[in-house]
Amino acid sequence: MPESVTLQREKGEGLYQNLGERLKETSRELCGIMFLYCSAGSPQLESLVRDFLQHESGMEFEVLKDASTQTLAILLPGLTLDATHYQALLLKQHLQETMEGADPRITLTVFPGQVDPTPGVLRQMAESTRLSTSSDIHIFTKEEAIQEPGRILIVDNDDTIREFLTIRLKMQGFETLEALDGTSALELIEKWEPDLVLTELNLYGIDGLPFIHQIQQLPVENTPKIVVLTEQRVERTISQCFQNGVDDYVTKPFSPVELDARIHRCFH
């Protein structure tokens, strides 16, 4: 999010305040909430959304509008996070089909969940919807509400793995960057100074042990921790990696839960 954008807080004040209070009252019941913003800003947006949600059977909903910023807030009581996500993608598809040139941006979360439904948080969610640079549906997480997330650099040539890891780690609140090969990874480590490098051993450019060596010889203040996630299962390779200061070694196929645990361990 660009930091230099000022937000017109005054007008939207009332809406978020009310919303915050309402959600606090029903704080023990599950409620999904999503913020929807369309840069095309058509006046029919609200009615389209209402029609669509009405056709979705057996679902309660409520649509509120922030008139000053043209952002819609949609409440879905009783829905879990994944159900809310699913509804969001159905809604996005519907809008893309029925509205011309629509480019809907959605940020969603669920209360109670990772964050508290304070007006500040709600405002932040709405802002992130408007300022979002990617058209992907975005899940708002706790660590976004705090500052100083940990930095992880993900290095792997395989798009599938990179995408999955980025999604997961972002959801846990880490700040992530991706690198496709050894040489660009080394450049990024030097420039961006991540706290942890999650890398495959089989890369283009430079890989394996020489790559690990180079990481440790880079002129950065704190050498990042290294977690290796690879298909290589040869004993010798594993022991050589550990001898060279790698913090953890996970073989593919891997259990995402286990990987999370190992990464979190590195951060403490």
């Binding site: 879990t80 996070l81 994944d82 159900a83 996500h85 699913y86 993608l89 996005k92 598809q93 992907d136 549906i137 899940i139 995408e163 999955f164 999604i167 997961r168 959801m171 995402p256 839960v257």
Partner: peptide, 16 residues
């Protein structure tokens, strides 16, 4: 189906 794939990847751990 990019959005759908993201949905799956985000929630593959969950109970539901």
């Amino acid at each position: 189906h990019h959005d759908y794939f993201m949905y799956i990847q985000a929630h593959v751990e969950n109970e539901g």
